[in-house]
Write a protein that binds this DNA or RNA. Sequence first.
RNA 1: GCUGAGAUCGUGUAGUGGCAAUCACAGGAGACUGUAAAUCUCCCGCCUUACGGCUCCGAAGGUUCGAGUCCUUCUCUCAGCA
Length: 414
Amino acid sequence: MNQALNFTITKKLEGTMARSGVISTPHGEIKTPAFIVGGTKATVKTLTNEQVIALGGQSVLANTYHLMLRPGAEVMAAAGGINKFMNWSGPTFTDSGGFQAFSLGMAYKKGIDTVSHSEKGDAAQAVHSSTQLAKVNDEGVKFQSHINGELLFMTPENSMEVQHAIAADIHMSFDEPTSPLAGRDYIKQAMDRTHRWAERSLKRHQELNAEHIQRGECLQALYGIVQGAREEDFRKESAQFLSQLDFDGYAIGGVFGYLEIPQVIQWVNEILPEDKPKHLLGLGSQPADLFLGVQYGTDTFDCVAPTRQARNGALFTYDGRINIRNARFCSDFSPIDSECDCYTCQNYSRAYINHLFRSDEILGLTLASIHNERFVVRTVDNIRDSIDDGTFFEYKKRFLERYYGPEQSTLFLD
RNA sequence: GCUGAGAUCGUGUAGUGGCAAUCACAGGAGACUGUAAAUCUCCCGCCUUACGGCUCCGAAGGUUCGAGUCCUUCUCUCAGCA
């Protein structure tokens, strides 16, 4: 294919921004909407690729910052790219490392989560913190490695160079997400910087793709990242700015939760080119994210929460989330969810998984991860089907009312 | 039987004359959204929504202004010797 990426919309859901489609990459297709599996360090934590495929994972997303630190860009290049390195044959994404400017910067050890509107704990002191491992300036982000303290400097250019060494199918431009505590002045400053970095990312990306052509290699794709926090004018400005640049797709970044999804995503998706794929960065820790994201035009999601929460014992059921460690599951021999088709639910009981967690047995982490990841992957797959057969709103209502209960679910039903 | 060492929260411990309850484990619950994360937070003698109140260092006495701590006796445990 002489194009890095091809996106075909197969069905639009009337009266909404939702659509189903197919993203074609050199490593295969992604049927969208799709949940992209978190594979930060070129591994889906606790799972083999066979398990990821069995739970329906179409594509994985790795992280440039992490792989740059270890094993390093040279090893990734020498391995022949991430697909060969981790033995994954399907489509892949890499995040640019921009998010670590936030998670290792303003948010580092400060109890700032990606959703809250106000500080909790000692977050108020974050602004004056000297413990943060990332500092941003116009040129790039100065990181102190969270592994060994080594100093490194990431720029849009070297993020792209490392991403091309990793050689995923779809890259992200280098960006700066802002803290939920940031004021409008800083949000604007970071957004403008993100725009300049988008131009620099794109330029370096195009140079690197030209080299791929010369060597007869596959082209790689690049998404531009929209920022602007929860500010309507900034979000629209950001979408407008990035629309004029020749990206293969767009990602919506920043830190917000499901309550802001309808507004934030609608603002930008009404402006971004309709025929390009849209990725919602870091959202999908719970069903409301998925339904709202798709309804307002999201084609792909990635989120580490399903696997992280699984490792910490928080498991999805159609009736809401449970903590499998709770005493009440010690002698509960039913599956995590009796309607779930995952390997774990087909073969193991709540009591057994409770025992594995209490005993610190690593199989528990794997079984829990299979379940949670299958739950979100299947939910997005079912959402796609509901777009194709026109039953999206019925499905959404039935799912969310049961999951959140009649009162809370009214927050997402319109 | 003799000698010695011990007995503090469910368990193992810290505390060696001055408001008892440190640390760990076990236990109870919660959080987690582009992974710093098999992590973090809270509770964990009794009562109390909370504020706070009441207990409590094997048992009983004693010394002392004051004892988990010092003394006496007893009970139990462990080790060694018979």
